[in-house]
């Protein structure tokens, strides 16, 4: 996140790659009523049709994809409400490794 905010990371670097992988997980598991590729990074996924049930499937798939575990304190609606928010959470967990 810090890199992205400072604008130091061009497309194709890890941050961009993480977002692409998140989008691929979303496409598979979030059961959105719209095409994931049409959504901005900041778009609200719940407004785009993601149910609580689908959000749990997505969390499990993200844990598997990135080999991370979301601690219970991160299991909140706002942490998973957009590609950007999920990206921030994933980067924070990957940085701990």
């Amino acid at each position: 996140m810090a890199y992205a905010e400072q604008g130091q990371v061009p497309t194709g670097t890890p941050v961009g790659d993480i977002r692409a992988r998140i989008r691929s997980v979303l496409k598979e598991h979030s059961q959105l009523s719209v095409d994931v590729s049409s959504l901005a990074d900041t778009a609200d996924l719940y407004e785009a049709g993601m149910t609580s049930r689908a959000s749990v499937s997505m969390m499990l798939a993200l844990e598997s994809e990135f080999e991370i575990e979301f601690p219970d304190t991160m299991l909140r609606r706002d942490v998973f409400e957009s590609v950007e928010a999920i990206g921030a959470a994933v980067e924070q967990l990957l940085a701990r490794h």
């Binding site: 499990l60 601690p71 299991l75």
Partner: peptide, 12 residues
Amino acid sequence: DTNASLLLIHKG
């Protein structure tokens, strides 16, 4: 059903 699904992701 909901709790079963939540317990898959919840650690505590």
